[in-house]
Design a protein around this nucleic acid. Structure first.
Lengths: 346, 346
DNA sequence: TTGAAAGCGCTAACAG
DNA sequence: CTGTTAGCGCTTTCAA
């Protein structure tokens, strides 16, 4: 910066002011400084400036993985939003429990970010407490934590509506397939199961634990076992609600391979509206990760810049049922019954 | 840090040495300092330390998007690798040309990273030159640039082998469907087309431009048009090689919807071995993005830490043909001909 | 093995 | 509107 100052014939203070866009610089001086900076290919060292301002100019995100449709979409919208605000995005990828433990032990973000976005984690009390005294805004994304800023879709309502759709098609035996609980790395899982149960209760149907099974969509065997469990029930389901689209696709493939027609014999409903859902013509409950990313970024900016901002704000995004061709009326021509519809819409 | 020093009854120099793991600290002092640091919940400010050391402790990546199977997998393996080396990962997401221009204009990474990994870009000479005097190692990933460190799979060989597979099944009319050229955001595209052409030439087949069409897999209409173009040829293809798995899936869906059996009438081969490929039972040419991410990270570490390292090293990763159920012998029972096989294996 | 002192490159407060 | 001055929190000589 000293070089730039010398070349422009001014002090470093002036260079600093110019480069930060302060208005208290005369146009001619500004022009000279900018040219000098350009000629010398100068860029301000964030390290040095943050040392004195106390702001790092970076927003950190903690994610279980980057290898998912959800995270990819969310961060792809978050990134540009932050850059537009002059901020950098640093990512902590925590694929397993030991990485996670290490993150919480060292909290490397501590002094190296102005805000932290925590994605899709199911945190322990202790972990949350740890983050509380991190000294920066912490936003919980795709999950909600009491009394802390959060951004998420209403998973309960989403699966409530999804299940109602199946009920309205006349289905009475509706299974729910959840992902294998990879301890602490998913939050929505419970909520979606909750919405499913709520809809059944609403319809006066008894809870049947045999209809709730778990599977990992990366693992053909586990999917086959889940399907097997359902098909071997005394009274097998006529519809399956999958916790995620990818799981739904795995289920459909497995069912069809076993000569069980979808939706002829079993309807399958997903959750996400994953990019692949359209090609599979999968009926699903849509959420928009890019909206989530954007909302989370905006909330982060607000909390960073405005100390009066509501530090307990919850931003809840909607879901939308997208009926496509993997859900159909219950086989046997049974007409949807009136009493299926809930007394009032939530 | 001063607080820690006081609490441990030593100087800040000693604290600094301890926390960096230097061996020139007596065990008892080290213990005291570590405890004090823990009690005060202290973390070193990267900003301050990098100001004096000149190293930022961050590795930057420039990516066109995060919203893809490839990027997600690559970064999911890169992230933990860097963290293990005590480095942070900052991501510049550049989804469009204006963001890209802005990145190259300001080069925000300039003084704020120790290395830059550039993913999947098709750079202009000028952009490459710009990166050359960034003052840090720049590694080109999933692309190769003459005289610069690069990590990529051998796309040419991959599609050469893929095409040979189709030839060996007796196919003679083999189409290639590429992605719409989103100017400058893909590199492998050309290479894969090249490998395809090479295989045809090898087999003594003429190049037929009518067999090469473009489509965007996000856009049903464009996929339908591409399929239409192929089906309306005087002599339609009996096999289609798609530049990417997602495109292959879109093609298969579109073909089947049009009552064109796959692989009964048309074989379809993909490229990537995307997570979904297995569920679709898609024949494909596999690459491993997580291996790429890992190799890129290792190369970056090497270039950052060892000034004698080869600054022009190219790491080329292999591809593997995975035959599944979307490729079959050419319809009509025509036997594979001997002269299809190339004189020598590459 | 430890401490004292001198900056790293920048911004902020205060004069002018 | 611009320059001077004093640090921000660390690491690194250099001495002890």
């Amino acid at each position: 910066m000293a070089d730039v100052a010398e070349r422009a014939g001014v002090s470093t203070s002036t260079v600093s002011r110019t480069l930060r866009g302060l208005t208290t610089v005369s146009p001619e001086v500004r022009a000279r400084v900018e040219q000098a900076a350009r000629e010398l290919n100068f860029a301000v060292s964030r390290q040095a400036s943050s040392l004195v301002t106390g702001r790092t100019g970076v927003v950190a995100v903690l994610v279980p993985t980057l290898n998912s449709w959800f995270m990819g979409s969310a961060l792809s919208s978050l990134g540009p939003l932050l850059r537009a605000a002059g901020l950098e995005l640093t990512v902590y990828v925590t694929p397993d429990l030991s990485e996670r433990a290490s993150f919480f032990e060292h909290l490397p973000a501590r002094r190296n970010a102005d805000a932290l976005l925590v994605f899709s984690f199911d945190l322990t009390e202790e972990e949350t407490a740890r983050l509380d005294d991190l000294g920066m805004p912490v936003i919980y994304v795709s999950q909600h934590v009491e009394g802390r800023p959060s951004v998420y879709v209403d998973d309960v309502a989403g699966s409530l509506h999804g299940t109602r759709h199946l009920l309205n098609l006349g289905h009475r035996r509706i299974a729910f397939v959840k992902t294998e609980p990879t301890s602490g790395f998913s939050f929505s899982s419970h909520e979606r199961l909750l919405g499913y149960r709520k809809a059944l209760t609403e319809a006066g149907l008894p809870a049947d634990d045999g209809l709730v099974v778990a599977a990992q969509f990366g693992d053909k065997r586990s999917v086959a076992e889940a399907v097997g469990a359902l098909l071997s029930l005394r009274e097998p389901p006529t519809a399956v609600f999958a916790e995620q689209d990818e799981l739904a696709i795995a289920l459909i493939t497995t069912l069809r391979r076993a000569q069980v027609e979808v939706p002829g014999r079993v309807s399958v409903l997903g959750f996400d509206d994953h990019r692949m859902a359209e090609w599979f013509d999968l009926s699903t409950v849509a959420q928009s990760p890019s909206d989530i990313g954007r909302a989370a970024g905006e909330l982060a900016l607000e909390l960073m810049n405005d100390s009066d901002a509501d530090r307990e704000r919850h931003v809840v995004l909607p879901t939308h049922l997208i009926p496509r061709s993997t859900t159909a009326p219950v086989p046997g021509g049974q007409e949807p019954r009136e009493d299926v519809n809930p007394p009032a819409d939530s």
